[in-house]
C-alpha cells in the first residue's frame, strides 16, 4: 500500500512545490497534473543517444529506477507498515540509493560531456557528505526508540517520545531536512529550474537522456523525494488515531505541508555557492551528532 500510494502520488508532490512557487511569485502556475502529462509525453517519445555513449548509458536509468522502487518497499507510510522490514533495513535503503547514484554518475560520464562530468562529480561528492549525516540521524532515531529497523523505529515514535526527547528528535529532523533538500537537488543546494548548465548539479546529468529514459529519471527523482519525505513525515507526525486510513490521510497532509514548505524555501532564498554546500552538509552532520549527544 505505501508503495502504491508513493508510486501514484509522488509526482503530485513536485506539483505542490511548483504551485507554491508560482503562487508566491504571483503566477498561476502549471496545472497540478502537469508532471504526469510530462511523464506520459516522454514515455511515448523516441530516443536520441549520444554517439559517444555505450550500454552503460542505456542501462543507467533502468537500474536507477529499479533501485529506488526497491528502496520504497522498505518505507512505511501513514497507517501502513512497509512491505518488508528487517533489522538494519535502512542501511539497505541508503545503499540502494547509492547504487542508483553510481549508475547515474557512470551514465553521465559515458557521454563524454564536460557539463555532465561536472554534474556527476558534484553529485557524487555532495552525496558522500550527506551519507554520514543520514546514518547519524537514523542512529539518533534508533537510539531513542531502541529499534534498528526503519518501520518499527518510526512506529515507535509517539507524542510521548516527542515529549520525552524533543531536542534529540528535532535536531535529527533538522539534519534530515537538510539531506532532503540536498539529495533531491533543491535550493539551496541545487536549483531544478535553472537554465544554465554550468550551475546545475542533478539536472545536468540528465542532459543527454531523452524519451523513456528521461521519463524514468524524472519519475525516479519524484519517488526519491517521496521516500525522504515519508521518513521526515513519519518522524514528525507521531499521532496515531488507530485507524490506518485516518493515519494515512494525516501523513498525506504532512507530505503536502512538506511540499509547500519546500516551495516556500525555494521562493525565499537563493542557492548557495557551490563551495558552501559541503559546509551545509557538515552542519547536517553536526546536527545529527548533537542529536546523539543529547
Amino acid at each position: 500500500m505505501p508503495l502504491i500510494l508513493g508510486a501514484l502520488l509522488a509526482p503530485l508532490m513536485q506539483s505542490a512545490i511548483i504551485r507554491t512557487k508560482s503562487v508566491m511569485a504571483g503566477r498561476v502556475g502549471p496545472p497540478l497534473l502537469q508532471p504526469y502529462r510530462d511523464l506520459w509525453k516522454l514515455v511515448r517519445k523516441g530516443a536520441v543517444f549520444s554517439e559517444t555513449s555505450s550500454w552503460i548509458f542505456q542501462m543507467g536509468p533502468s537500474v536507477g529506477l529499479a533501485s529506488i522502487i526497491l528502496a520504497m518497499t522498505l518505507i512505511p507510510f501513514g497507517g501502513f507498515a512497509a512491505l518488508s522490514s528487517f533489522t538494519g533495513d535502512f542501511i539497505l535503503v541508503a545503499y540502494l540509493m547509492a547504487l542508483g547514484r553510481f549508475f547515474t554518475v557512470a551514465a553521465a560520464l559515458d557521454t563524454g560531456s564536460s557539463f555532465e562530468g561536472m554534474g556527476a562529480s558534484r553529485e557524487a561528492t555532495f552525496s558522500a557528505f550527506a551519507e554520514p549525516a543520514f546514518f547519524l540521524a537514523l542512529a539518533a532515531l534508533a537510539r531513542q526508540t531502541g529499534q534498528v529497523s526503519l518501520g518499527p523505529a518510526l512506529a515507535a515514535v509517539s507524542t510521548a517520545t516527542w515529549m520525552r526527547a524533543a531536542p534529540t528528535l528535532s535536531l535529527a529532523l533538522a539534519a534530515l531536512s537538510i539531506i532532503f533538500l540536498s539529495e533531491n537537488a533543491r535550493i539551496p543546494v541545487d536549483d531544478p529550474a535553472t537554465h544554465l548548465e554550468l550551475t546545475m548539479i542533478h539536472e545536468v546529468m540528465a542532459l543527454d537522456h531523452s524519451g523513456p529514459d528521461l521519463a524514468m529519471i524524472e519519475y525516479g527523482a519524484a519517488l526519491k523525494m517521496w521516500l525522504f519525505g515519508a521518513i521526515i513525515v513519519g518522524l514528525t507526525a507521531p499521532w496515531r488515531a488507530g485507524n490506518r486510513w485516518m493515519d494515512t490521510a494525516a501523513a498525506l497532509i504532512g507530505m503536502l505541508i512538506l511540499g509547500v514548505g519546500t516551495g516556500v524555501i525555494e521562493s525565499s532564498m537563493a542557492r548557495l555557492r557551490l563551495i558552501r554546500v559541503p559546509q551545509l552538509l557538515l552542519v547536517a552532520i553536526v546536527l545529527s551528532a548533537l542529536a546523539l549527544a543529547l
Binding site: 523516441g46 536520441v48 543517444f49 549520444s50 560531456s113
Partner: peptide, 14 residues
C-alpha cells in the same frame, strides 16, 4: 517500447 519508436544517435549535447 524503444523498438517501436525512432531511435537516433547524435553528438553529445554541449
Amino acid at each position: 517500447t524503444l523498438a517501436r519508436r525512432s531511435v537516433a544517435s547524435a553528438a553529445t549535447w554541449d
